[in-house]
Design a protein around this nucleic acid. Sequence first.
DNA 1: GTTTCATGTAACAAATAAAGTTACAGAATC
DNA 2: GATTCTGTAACTTTATTTGTTACATGAAAC
Lengths: 150, 150
Amino acid sequence: MKRNSQLAASLHALIHMAEHDAPMTSEELARCFDTNPVVVRRTMAGLREAGIVASGGGRGGGWTLKRAPADIRLLDVYRGLGEPTLFHVGPREASSPCLIDHAVVDAMAPAFDEAEALLLKRLAAITLADVAAEYHARAACVKKGKRHAT
Amino acid sequence: MKRNSQLAASLHALIHMAEHDAPMTSEELARCFDTNPVVVRRTMAGLREAGIVASGGGRGGGWTLKRAPADIRLLDVYRGLGEPTLFHVGPREASSPCLIDHAVVDAMAPAFDEAEALLLKRLAAITLADVAAEYHARAACVKKGKRHAT
DNA sequence: GTTTCATGTAACAAATAAAGTTACAGAATC
DNA sequence: GATTCTGTAACTTTATTTGTTACATGAAAC
């Protein structure tokens, strides 16, 4: 099944913005992921409303972080994207009037709810600054020629 | 996004089979979910290989449970379905050579891995017998006229 | 104030994947 | 041997995301 990559892509974009002094245009960002400027704008629109990024038009315009990276939790980004459905698999709405269908949904739901709660908790514990630090660590390794196996 | 309902549908089917003495044909099961017999066979094929159900052709043929409901964990069913991707959202494979991409994936992965582990653990703790019990409880309520709000 | 460069958004096209369908071969009962 | 079921391949349909085009709007530079 096709995976929703908005969250990963957004984080990627946000780090680029954090590492960049001037605003970045949609086109610059689009080149980073090999996608389309309009896709970038669409995705960023939600993050702007969530107060995570700001956009400016005209010459020298583009996208900038509105908060410090340490102040942006992955959960915030996820929410800014409109909280897309987390699970592929899962109890669909009990569609039929069949009681078995309801029993199945009720039996499965707690497991998925718990997993979702844990995931959101973890996403709340990671900030953009953490991801940036991870990136800098990697960049330092590469400079020293200690490239990872991955 | 479209949700993979195979797990919920399979469980639904398995309960029907548990409640039914004789083998159930693909067509009977298909009617339960308002779907197609071929879809049922396709889904059940994996469960047969996992040793959860058995199928027989010819007159009086159809699908039967191969193990006791108390012996069938939801996790087994999930595995029998080929372990479809659990998450919609999530770190895609780090596609670009960009180090930031890798950093993002590495930062997100533990959160998703933990959530997945928890979910699988919960699915391992629920058996088909539990779901059947949930169903019987509901059926009893309806008989007594104490229908749920849901 | 006009030009230029950027976002904002609507409308449409392409790509992808699940689900549904048709068709027919193969196996088990009667 | 006829009937009734599964097994499976091939195709169609449908839903959703992603990509694209087009153009209106707004901000800075000159």
